[in-house]
Computed example of a mutant assay.
Amino acid sequence: MANGRNRRRRAPMSLRNVQVGGARPYRIDIGADLLRDGALLAQSLRGRHALVVSDNNVAPLYLQRTVDALRAARPDIRIASHAMPAGEQEKTLARFGNAIDALAALGATRDGCVYALGGGVVGDLAGFAAACWMRGIDCVQLPTTLLAMVDSSVGGKTAVDLPQGKNLVGAFHPPVAVIADTAALATLPARELRAGFAEVIKYGAIVDAPFLDWLAAHSDALLDGDADALSEAIARSCAHKAAIVERDPFEHGERALLNFGHTFGHAIETAQEYGTLNHGEAVAIGMVLAARLSTALGMATDTDTMILRALLQRFDLPTQLPAGLDPDTLLAHMRLDKKAQASGLRFVLWDGLGRARVVADVPEDAVLGVLRSG
């Protein structure tokens, strides 16, 4: 993973924490060089078995330091590592089976722990393996991408994809800790960093309009990798997600708001077979489409859509459907979306900036109209 741009580096910032409450509370630690902090990494390890799951991009950069830090803190533990091929296209049942085989080879007991070291793909797959091994063992999320730090590592959603759609096989399995080492973002390609800002912007779009103003004002610093600005954006995003997850851990209501833009985005990813746009880019387009659908249904004005589009473009994110995607095919994928019901499609739409809500039985002709107009 090559560094995508010359980013400013400041002295390490102080550690920030966000607490996730509920039936299984845990803490999110945010700060620089946390993957070297063995005491913090081992804090949640109850037993003597640890499997660190990573991918072929992240492992050469951070796997050994993570293993060394854990061993230094807990010399008595047995540690194994498993690196999978990188990419959304690898988030499959077959790769899940490989992770389960690694747990079996380790002889992991019920007090063992899986450490998910990587982006959202690793976090989802490793978390799902932890959810299934012996009906559930501990998982510590070690996100190394901005997108994973602010979204997929928090909340306990774990899954793998099928050819028919994203995240169709999975489980709710909250981590026992999330440790976000912001120093890892310095080695993130610029495109992947930008993709993470789609999920950051999402929090402003659904619940916190003033956050959108803050992001616009700090966009240059954020894109340049300013440590303090990134830490603030991550902490504010995680605080929003933690509050929503605490109130609705199993997505029976409010938590669905976190899927703003995702129904469109997942359909785009599936139609492109996870090979063109990455997740954040697809969600960026999906949020604009969701905003436009809201306008078509008389819920919001074009002005708010234009503000959202302009902010996404400020972070160099796409805001229009790629050429060549068939609207009817995209709609077919949406019918398999987890938010869909027997009575029809459900979307997370908005009444304007910071005011999202779930809307049931959205007319398919309105969806097709938005898709056909790009």
Rank of each mutant, 00 (worst) to 15 (best):
residue 241 K to W: 08
residue 193 L to A: 10
residue 111 D to V: 07
residue 83 A to R: 01
residue 134 M to G: 13
residue 296 A to K: 08
residue 345 L to C: 05
residue 191 R to A: 09
residue 18 V to L: 09
residue 341 Q to W: 13
residue 60 P to M: 05
residue 218 H to W: 14
residue 247 R to I: 10
residue 286 G to I: 05
residue 133 W to T: 14
residue 6 N to W: 13
residue 122 V to D: 10
residue 210 P to R: 10
residue 24 R to C: 13
residue 143 P to T: 02
residue 370 V to T: 09
residue 46 R to N: 14
residue 177 A to K: 09
residue 110 R to Q: 11
residue 140 V to G: 05
residue 193 L to N: 06
residue 67 V to P: 15
residue 291 A to K: 07
residue 99 A to V: 09
residue 31 G to H: 14
residue 107 G to Q: 00
residue 205 A to H: 01
residue 299 M to D: 05
residue 148 A to I: 01
residue 323 A to Q: 10
residue 168 L to W: 03
residue 7 R to C: 10
residue 252 H to G: 14
residue 317 L to H: 08
residue 91 K to C: 06
residue 353 L to A: 10
residue 60 P to E: 15
residue 97 G to W: 10
residue 346 R to H: 12
residue 146 L to W: 12
residue 178 V to C: 05
residue 56 N to A: 11
residue 339 K to T: 00
residue 283 V to C: 06
residue 64 Q to L: 15
residue 13 M to D: 11
residue 137 I to T: 09
residue 148 A to P: 01
residue 284 A to L: 05
residue 363 P to K: 02
residue 365 D to E: 13
residue 205 A to F: 00
residue 365 D to K: 01
residue 313 Q to N: 08
residue 178 V to G: 03
residue 93 L to C: 15
residue 242 A to D: 12
residue 79 I to G: 03
residue 368 L to A: 00
residue 13 M to Q: 09
residue 217 A to C: 08
residue 1 M to S: 15
residue 287 M to A: 07
residue 178 V to I: 01
residue 374 G to S: 06
residue 113 C to I: 12
residue 221 A to E: 11
residue 306 M to T: 15
residue 6 N to Q: 15
residue 3 N to L: 15
residue 14 S to V: 06
residue 233 A to G: 01
residue 47 G to I: 03
residue 178 V to M: 04
residue 18 V to F: 10
residue 278 N to S: 04
residue 229 A to Y: 01
residue 275 G to T: 14
residue 352 G to D: 00
residue 35 L to F: 14
residue 364 E to L: 06
residue 129 A to R: 04
residue 191 R to W: 14
residue 216 A to K: 06
residue 220 D to C: 05
residue 196 G to H: 06
residue 152 S to F: 07
residue 127 G to C: 05
residue 299 M to L: 15
residue 127 G to K: 00
residue 165 G to Y: 00
residue 100 I to K: 07
residue 19 Q to I: 12
residue 236 R to G: 02
residue 129 A to C: 08
residue 304 D to R: 06
residue 236 R to Q: 03
residue 53 V to G: 03
residue 268 I to N: 08
residue 314 R to W: 04
residue 10 R to S: 11
residue 187 T to M: 14
residue 186 A to S: 13
residue 37 D to N: 08
residue 90 E to D: 09
residue 130 A to I: 13
residue 243 A to S: 14
residue 25 P to K: 02
residue 299 M to N: 12
